[in-house]
Amino acid sequence: DETGKFLVLSLYDYQEKSPREVTMKKGDILTLLNSTNKDWWKVEVNGRQGFVPAAYVKFL
């Protein structure tokens, strides 16, 4: 199980638009929880879990 094993870097600021999403700032290091959807990845940032656009992050 690779859940929570990968870190990704936020390339852009992102403001959550729904309760299922999370806000991140450019340069944030996020824990990747799920990347099965090619468009939206589930991450943990600042103690919160939610989705961010996959195009806004990259693997470290």
Rank of each mutant, 00 (worst) to 15 (best):
residue 54 A to D: 01
residue 59 F to K: 11
residue 55 A to L: 10
residue 40 W to I: 02
residue 50 G to F: 04
residue 17 K to A: 11
residue 59 F to V: 15
residue 8 V to K: 01
residue 5 K to F: 13
residue 54 A to Y: 03
residue 1 D to T: 14
residue 48 R to P: 01
residue 27 G to I: 01
residue 16 E to I: 05
residue 11 L to W: 05
residue 39 D to K: 13
residue 29 I to H: 05
residue 35 S to P: 07
residue 53 P to N: 03
residue 8 V to M: 09
residue 38 K to C: 11
residue 56 Y to Q: 06
residue 45 V to R: 11
residue 7 L to K: 11
residue 21 E to I: 05
residue 37 N to P: 03
residue 48 R to H: 07
residue 53 P to V: 05
residue 42 K to F: 15
residue 29 I to W: 05
residue 37 N to S: 10
residue 46 N to F: 07
residue 58 K to F: 10
residue 54 A to E: 01
residue 3 T to L: 13
residue 10 S to G: 08
residue 24 M to S: 00
residue 26 K to E: 07
residue 51 F to A: 01
residue 12 Y to W: 10
residue 45 V to F: 14
residue 4 G to P: 14
residue 57 V to W: 02
residue 55 A to K: 15
residue 44 E to Y: 06
residue 57 V to T: 03
residue 54 A to H: 03
residue 8 V to P: 00
residue 34 N to S: 13
residue 28 D to K: 04
residue 36 T to R: 11
residue 26 K to W: 04
residue 4 G to K: 14
residue 15 Q to I: 15
residue 55 A to G: 11
residue 17 K to V: 09
residue 40 W to S: 01
residue 4 G to W: 12
residue 41 W to L: 07
residue 58 K to D: 08
residue 10 S to A: 15
residue 3 T to I: 13
residue 49 Q to R: 11
residue 20 R to N: 14
residue 33 L to M: 07
residue 36 T to W: 10
residue 60 L to P: 04
residue 44 E to A: 09
residue 30 L to F: 05
residue 33 L to Q: 02
residue 12 Y to A: 13
residue 19 P to C: 10
residue 28 D to L: 06
residue 35 S to H: 11
residue 3 T to S: 13
residue 20 R to W: 15
residue 24 M to Q: 01
residue 39 D to H: 15
residue 21 E to N: 05
residue 3 T to N: 13
residue 13 D to T: 06
residue 53 P to K: 04
residue 2 E to Q: 14
residue 52 V to T: 01
residue 52 V to F: 02
residue 42 K to I: 13
residue 34 N to T: 07
residue 41 W to Y: 10
residue 49 Q to G: 06
residue 46 N to G: 12
residue 26 K to R: 11
residue 31 T to W: 12
residue 14 Y to G: 01
residue 25 K to V: 09
residue 53 P to Q: 03
residue 39 D to T: 13
residue 22 V to P: 01
residue 17 K to L: 09
residue 32 L to D: 00
residue 32 L to A: 02
residue 10 S to Q: 03
residue 56 Y to R: 04
residue 16 E to A: 15
residue 22 V to L: 14
residue 25 K to T: 09
residue 22 V to Y: 02
residue 48 R to N: 07
residue 21 E to D: 05
residue 19 P to F: 10
residue 52 V to G: 00
residue 38 K to S: 12
residue 57 V to K: 00
residue 5 K to D: 08
residue 10 S to N: 02
residue 56 Y to S: 10
residue 1 D to N: 14
residue 38 K to A: 12
residue 45 V to E: 01
residue 20 R to L: 14
residue 40 W to K: 01
residue 52 V to N: 00
residue 43 V to A: 00
residue 7 L to D: 03
residue 40 W to F: 07
residue 13 D to A: 06
residue 50 G to L: 03
residue 33 L to A: 02
residue 15 Q to P: 08
residue 45 V to K: 11
residue 33 L to C: 07
residue 9 L to V: 15
residue 47 G to D: 07
residue 39 D to L: 13
residue 28 D to H: 06
residue 30 L to Q: 01
residue 18 S to N: 12
residue 40 W to P: 00
residue 52 V to D: 00
residue 56 Y to P: 00
residue 18 S to E: 09
residue 28 D to Y: 05
residue 26 K to H: 06
residue 11 L to N: 03
residue 8 V to T: 03
residue 51 F to P: 00
residue 27 G to M: 02
residue 7 L to E: 06
residue 23 T to V: 04
residue 1 D to Q: 14
residue 8 V to F: 07
residue 58 K to N: 07
residue 18 S to M: 08
residue 33 L to K: 04
residue 1 D to W: 13
residue 47 G to M: 04
residue 21 E to Y: 06
residue 1 D to V: 14
residue 52 V to S: 01
residue 3 T to K: 14
residue 45 V to Q: 08
residue 12 Y to H: 14
residue 19 P to W: 12
residue 41 W to H: 02
residue 30 L to M: 15
residue 6 F to I: 15
residue 43 V to M: 01
residue 58 K to Y: 10
residue 45 V to C: 09
residue 40 W to L: 03
residue 29 I to Q: 05
residue 59 F to G: 06
residue 1 D to K: 11
residue 18 S to D: 12
residue 31 T to V: 15
residue 48 R to M: 08
residue 32 L to T: 01
residue 29 I to A: 03
residue 36 T to C: 15
residue 32 L to S: 01
residue 10 S to F: 06
residue 55 A to I: 12
residue 52 V to H: 01
residue 30 L to E: 00
residue 24 M to C: 05
residue 29 I to L: 09
residue 58 K to W: 09
residue 43 V to Y: 00
residue 12 Y to T: 10
residue 55 A to R: 15
residue 57 V to I: 10
residue 33 L to V: 11
residue 14 Y to N: 02
residue 22 V to T: 05
residue 19 P to R: 08
residue 3 T to G: 13
residue 59 F to N: 07
residue 2 E to L: 14
residue 41 W to F: 09
residue 44 E to V: 08
residue 17 K to I: 07
residue 16 E to M: 12
residue 11 L to H: 03
residue 31 T to A: 09
residue 11 L to S: 03
residue 40 W to R: 01
residue 19 P to S: 11
residue 34 N to D: 15
residue 35 S to R: 13
residue 15 Q to E: 15
residue 12 Y to K: 13
residue 17 K to E: 08
residue 50 G to H: 01
residue 54 A to G: 03
residue 50 G to T: 01
residue 3 T to Q: 14
residue 10 S to C: 15
residue 45 V to D: 02
residue 28 D to R: 03
residue 26 K to C: 08
residue 34 N to I: 07
residue 43 V to D: 00
residue 20 R to A: 12
residue 42 K to G: 04
residue 37 N to G: 10
residue 58 K to V: 15
residue 36 T to L: 09
residue 37 N to L: 08
residue 7 L to R: 10
residue 35 S to V: 09
residue 31 T to Q: 11
residue 42 K to P: 01
residue 32 L to R: 01
residue 44 E to L: 08
residue 44 E to N: 05
residue 14 Y to C: 06
residue 11 L to Q: 05
residue 34 N to P: 03
residue 54 A to T: 05
residue 51 F to R: 02
residue 13 D to W: 04
residue 18 S to G: 13
residue 49 Q to K: 10
residue 6 F to M: 13
residue 54 A to W: 03
residue 40 W to D: 00
residue 16 E to N: 07
residue 5 K to E: 09
residue 23 T to S: 15
residue 13 D to I: 04
residue 46 N to D: 12
residue 53 P to A: 03
residue 14 Y to L: 02
residue 51 F to T: 01
residue 53 P to D: 02
residue 19 P to D: 12
residue 47 G to N: 07
residue 55 A to Q: 12
residue 57 V to M: 06
residue 34 N to M: 08
residue 30 L to N: 01
residue 53 P to S: 03
residue 1 D to Y: 13
residue 5 K to W: 11
residue 31 T to S: 08
residue 28 D to S: 07
residue 17 K to M: 12
residue 56 Y to G: 07
residue 19 P to K: 10
residue 54 A to Q: 04
residue 26 K to P: 04
residue 46 N to A: 10
residue 26 K to A: 13
residue 54 A to S: 14
residue 30 L to I: 08
residue 29 I to E: 03
residue 4 G to L: 13
residue 18 S to L: 08
residue 15 Q to S: 11
residue 9 L to Y: 11
residue 13 D to E: 05
residue 8 V to S: 02
residue 30 L to P: 01
residue 5 K to T: 12
residue 19 P to L: 09
residue 59 F to A: 11
residue 37 N to R: 09
residue 58 K to L: 12
residue 28 D to P: 01
residue 35 S to M: 15
residue 36 T to G: 10
residue 54 A to L: 02
residue 3 T to M: 13
residue 7 L to Y: 15
residue 49 Q to P: 05
residue 29 I to S: 03
residue 48 R to W: 04
residue 45 V to A: 10
residue 52 V to E: 01
residue 23 T to C: 06
residue 32 L to F: 05
residue 43 V to C: 03
residue 34 N to V: 08
residue 30 L to W: 02
residue 39 D to Q: 11
residue 46 N to C: 08
residue 51 F to Y: 15
residue 24 M to L: 08
residue 15 Q to F: 14
residue 33 L to R: 03
residue 21 E to R: 04
residue 37 N to Q: 09
residue 12 Y to Q: 14
residue 42 K to L: 15
residue 9 L to N: 01
residue 54 A to N: 02
residue 29 I to G: 00
residue 5 K to Y: 13
residue 39 D to C: 15
residue 47 G to P: 00
residue 2 E to W: 08
residue 21 E to H: 06
residue 50 G to P: 00
residue 53 P to M: 04
residue 38 K to F: 07
residue 21 E to F: 07
residue 12 Y to V: 13
residue 4 G to Q: 14
residue 35 S to K: 11
residue 37 N to D: 15
residue 4 G to V: 13
residue 43 V to H: 00
residue 28 D to Q: 13
residue 2 E to A: 14
residue 53 P to C: 06
residue 44 E to Q: 09
residue 37 N to I: 05
residue 42 K to V: 13
residue 52 V to Y: 01
residue 32 L to C: 09
residue 48 R to Q: 08
residue 8 V to R: 02
residue 25 K to G: 05
residue 48 R to V: 09
residue 50 G to W: 03
residue 3 T to V: 13
residue 20 R to C: 15
residue 27 G to D: 05
residue 9 L to M: 13
residue 42 K to N: 06
residue 3 T to W: 13
residue 29 I to T: 06
residue 4 G to F: 14
residue 5 K to P: 14
residue 5 K to L: 12
residue 44 E to D: 09
residue 22 V to N: 02
residue 47 G to V: 02
residue 9 L to A: 05
residue 26 K to T: 06
residue 4 G to T: 13
residue 14 Y to H: 04
residue 53 P to R: 05
residue 32 L to N: 00
residue 27 G to F: 04
residue 29 I to N: 02
residue 18 S to Q: 07
residue 10 S to M: 06
residue 59 F to P: 13
residue 53 P to T: 03
residue 25 K to N: 09
residue 46 N to S: 09
residue 11 L to D: 03
residue 2 E to G: 14
residue 14 Y to A: 02
residue 17 K to N: 10
residue 60 L to E: 06
residue 57 V to R: 00
residue 6 F to L: 14
